[in-house]
C-alpha cells in the first residue's frame, strides 16, 4: 500500500512535467492544426545550451534556466519559420515532414557541438527531501511538480483570463471564424508557437534537473511523452493534456515500482499504442 502510494506520488510529480510537454504539443496542434514532431528536439537544443553554460559557469542556476528556455525558443522560432510559416499554404502533412527534417538537424547539431553524447545538467541537489509519513518526496520530484504546476497555472491564466488567450482559443476553435472577427491568424499562430516553445523549455529545465543529464535521444523521448500525453487527453483539449500527462506519469512509476525499470518505457509505449488501437476514430480535437 505504501509502495502504491509512493509510486502514485512519484508518478504525479513526474507526470506534471509530461503534462507540460503535452500542453506545448496541444497548443501548437490546436492552433495550427499541424503536428510539430520537432517539439522535443527544440527542447533538446535548450537543454544542451543550458548544459554548456553550466559547464562553463558552475553554480549559475538562474542563467542556466534562462539559457535553456532561450535555446528552446530560438529553436522554436527556427521550426516555426521554416516548417510552419513557410509552408502555411501547403497541406498539413508537408509541415509534419518538414519537422522530421528539422528534428534530424537539431539532433545532429547538438551532437556535433558537444564533447560527449551524455551531457550533465545541474540540479539543486542541496534541497532536502521531505518525508510525509512513510512517503518520501524527493527534492527533484517536488521541484518538477511545483514548477510544472506553477507554469500550468500561469498558462491557463494566460489562455482563459486574457484577451490574447481568448484569441488563441478562438483561432484553435475556428480559424476561419476568427479571421472574420478581424484576427490575424498567422500572427496568433506564431505567438502560440512561441508560448509552446517557452513552456517546452521550462519543462526541459524541470526534467533535466531531475535526470541531471541529457543525451541526444531526449528529443525523441520528449516528443513521444508529449504526444502521448496529448493523445491520452483526447488530442486537442488543454485540460485533457494535463490529465493525460499525469496518467502517463502514474502508469510509468507504478510499472517501475512493481515490475522494474526495463518495463517502464515498454508500458508507456504500450499505453500509446492501446489508446490508438482502442479508439481508432479518436476525435482529434477542434478547440482547446
Amino acid at each position: 500500500m505504501v509502495d502504491f502510494l509512493q509510486a502514485l506520488v512519484d508518478g504525479v510529480m513526474l507526470g506534471a512535467t509530461y503534462s507540460l510537454l503535452g500542453l506545448g504539443f496541444t497548443l501548437i496542434f490546436g492552433v495550427l492544426r499541424r503536428l510539430n514532431l520537432a517539439f522535443g528536439p527544440t527542447i533538446l537544443v535548450g537543454i544542451y545550451a543550458g548544459s554548456h553554460l553550466s559547464l562553463a559557469w558552475p553554480g549559475a542556476l538562474v542563467p542556466v534556466v534562462a539559457v535553456t528556455v532561450a535555446g528552446a525558443l530560438l529553436a522554436g522560432v527556427y521550426v516555426e519559420r521554416f516548417s510552419f510559416r513557410a509552408l502555411a499554404r501547403q497541406a498539413p502533412v508537408v509541415s509534419m515532414i518538414s519537422t522530421f527534417a528539422v528534428w534530424m538537424q537539431l539532433q545532429e547539431l547538438v551532437s556535433l557541438l558537444s564533447p560527449s553524447r551524455t551531457m550533465p545538467y545541474p540540479s539543486p541537489v542541496w534541497l532536502p527531501a521531505v518525508a510525509v509519513g512513510p512517503i518520501l518526496l524527493r527534492s527533484d520530484g517536488l521541484l518538477m511538480w511545483s514548477g510544472a504546476t506553477l507554469i500550468m497555472l500561469a498558462l491557463f491564466a494566460l489562455l482563459y483570463r486574457t484577451r490574447f488567450g481568448t484569441t488563441i482559443r478562438a483561432v484553435a476553435d475556428s480559424s476561419e471564424a476568427a479571421t472574420l472577427m478581424g484576427v490575424n491568424v498567422a500572427m496568433v499562430g506564431a505567438a502560440a508557437f512561441l508560448v509552446a516553445s517557452a513552456v517546452g523549455g521550462l519543462a526541459g529545465v524541470l526534467i533535466a534537473q531531475s535526470h541531471q543529464q541529457v543525451t541526444p535521444y531526449f528529443g525523441l523521448w520528449a516528443t513521444v511523452k508529449g504526444m502521448t500525453a496529448m493523445l491520452l487527453g483526447g488530442a486537442g483539449s488543454l485540460p485533457g493534456a494535463v490529465v493525460g500527462g499525469l496518467a502517463l506519469g502514474v502508469v510509468e512509476t507504478q510499472t517501475l515500482w512493481h515490475f522494474g525499470g526495463q518495463w517502464r518505457d515498454l508500458v508507456s509505449y504500450a499505453l500509446l499504442f492501446l489508446v490508438v488501437a482502442l479508439s481508432p476514430r479518436t476525435r482529434w480535437g477542434s478547440g482547446l
Binding site: 481568448t166 484569441t167 482559443r169 478562438a170 484553435a172 476553435d173 475556428s174 476561419e176 471564424a177 476568427a178 472574420l180 472577427m181 478581424g182 484576427v183 477542434s286 478547440g287 482547446l288
Partner: peptide
C-alpha cells in the same frame, strides 16, 4: 462583417466569449 454559412460559432468557448471575440477588432 460576415455571418458565415453554418454559423461557425466558437463551439468550445462560452457565449459571452464568442461575443467578445466578435468585438476583437
Amino acid at each position: 462583417s460576415l455571418v458565415p454559412e453554418n454559423r461557425l460559432v466558437f463551439a468550445h468557448m462560452t457565449v459571452r466569449e464568442n461575443l467578445l471575440a466578435g468585438a476583437y477588432a
